[in-house]
Design a binder for these strands. Sequence first.
DNA 1: CGATTAATGTATTCATTGCACACATCATAT
DNA 2: ATATGATGTGTGCAATGAATACATTAATCG
Lengths: 217, 217
Amino acid sequence: MSEKAKIGQAGKSNYHHGDLATTIMELAIEEIAQQGTERLSLRLLARQAGVSQTAPYRHFPTKTCLLAALATRGFVELRERVRSIVESDAPIETRFIGMGVSYVEFALENPVLYQLMFGGVVADFSAYESLQTAAKACYMEVRRCEQELIAAKRIPHEDVRLGGAIWAGVHGIASLLLNMQPGPEVGRERNDPRSAVQAMRADVEDTVRILFGRMVE
Amino acid sequence: MSEKAKIGQAGKSNYHHGDLATTIMELAIEEIAQQGTERLSLRLLARQAGVSQTAPYRHFPTKTCLLAALATRGFVELRERVRSIVESDAPIETRFIGMGVSYVEFALENPVLYQLMFGGVVADFSAYESLQTAAKACYMEVRRCEQELIAAKRIPHEDVRLGGAIWAGVHGIASLLLNMQPGPEVGRERNDPRSAVQAMRADVEDTVRILFGRMVE
DNA sequence: CGATTAATGTATTCATTGCACACATCATAT
DNA sequence: ATATGATGTGTGCAATGAATACATTAATCG
C-alpha cells in the first residue's frame, strides 16, 4: 500500500499519470496566479500535464468543481495552521494574536487559494459538501480560540457575534492585503490606500493588535 | 440637451439602442447574481438587450473591461454613501459607527458589485485607471473619518495602520456576510459559522461596535 | 494465477464563447 | 447638407466546457 503511489513516476507506462488530480490542482494554482480565474482552461492544464485534453474532467467534472476543490484544500490547510497555533500552550492572549497573524500569513502565502475561498467565484458554496464542511471546520478553530478568551473572563461572554467579528477582522486584513496590492509604482501620497496597506503588511502583528487590542488586554 | 437622452426610448429607430452601456451593465449584474462571473457571456447580454451579439464590445472591448466598469461604479457609489454619512454633523463617534454600518449595508444591497470590487476577479486593478482612482477616492472617505477620530483625540494618532485596520474591519464584516450565507437549511448547531453570520446580519451595528468599540468610547 | 471490474485516460464531437474585421446607420457640428 | 465620429450589424475563427463512447491499466477475488 505504501509503494502504489509511484505508479507513473519513472517514465513507465505513461498511460496512467499517477496522480493527475493533484498535478492539475497545482498547475491550476500557478495558472490562476498569472492569468486569473476567468482565463483558466482545463484543456491548457491537461496539455501542461502532458495528458489528454479531456482527462482532467475525469477528476473534476466541471471547471467550477476544480475551483471548489482548490478552495476546499485552502480551508483544510488554513484550519491546520490555525489549529497548530490555538493548541499550543502559550497564554491565551498570545495564542489569540498569533492566530490572527498566522491566518493573515496563510492568505499572503496562498493568495490564489484564499481568493478562491472568499472571492465568490464558487458562488454556491452549498453545492459542494466537502467545501462547506471544510469551511465550517476552519471557522470552528477560530471559534475555539474565542471560547478560550471568554473562558479566561477577558471579555463579556454575552457577545454572540464576537466569533464572527474576530473572523471578520482577520479576514478583512487578509483580503485587503491581497486586493490592494501596490503596483510597481508605489504611491507615496499621504492618502493613498496602498500606503496604508503597505504599512499593514510591514507589520501584520501590529495591525492585528490595533484591531483586537481591547479584547486581549 | 435635456431631451437628447430619450433617443431609443419609445420604439423609435431601434437601430441605436439609446444607452446600451448602462443597459448591459444592469443586465450583467442580474446575470452575475444568478450565474456567477464565470458563466457570464457578453453575447447573452446582447441578446437580452435585443441587440447584435457583438454590439456590447463597442462599449466594453473585453469581458474583463465590463467587470472592471462594474467594479468602478461600485466604488463610486460606495464612496458616495460613505461620504454622506461622514459629512453629516453628528458627533464623530456616531458618524464613525454609522460609516461602518452604511459600508456594510452597501455590500449587502449590492452583493455583485461588492464581490467584483474585492473578489479578485479583475486581478490587475492597475490596468484600469478609473477603477484605481475610484477605489482610492473611496478609501479616502474612510480615511477622512479616521482623521477626524484622531483629531478628536480619541485615539493615539501615531497609528499609521489605523485607517487600514478600520477598513479591514468593515470590509471583513461585509465580505463574510456575503460569502458565508446560510443555505436554505439553516444550521442551528452551536458552532456553525453561519449562525454567527446570521447573528451579525441581524444587527450590523452591534457587530461594528464590537469590533470598533474601543476606538470610540 | 487469471479473469472480472472499477479507475483512469483517450478520441471525437458539438454548442457556445470571446473577439477581430469590415461594413451600415445614425446624431450632430460645422 | 454633409463630413465625421459614435454606435450598431454580420460574418468568421480559434478556443473552450462538456457529453459520449472507447481504450488501457491496476486491483480484487475466485
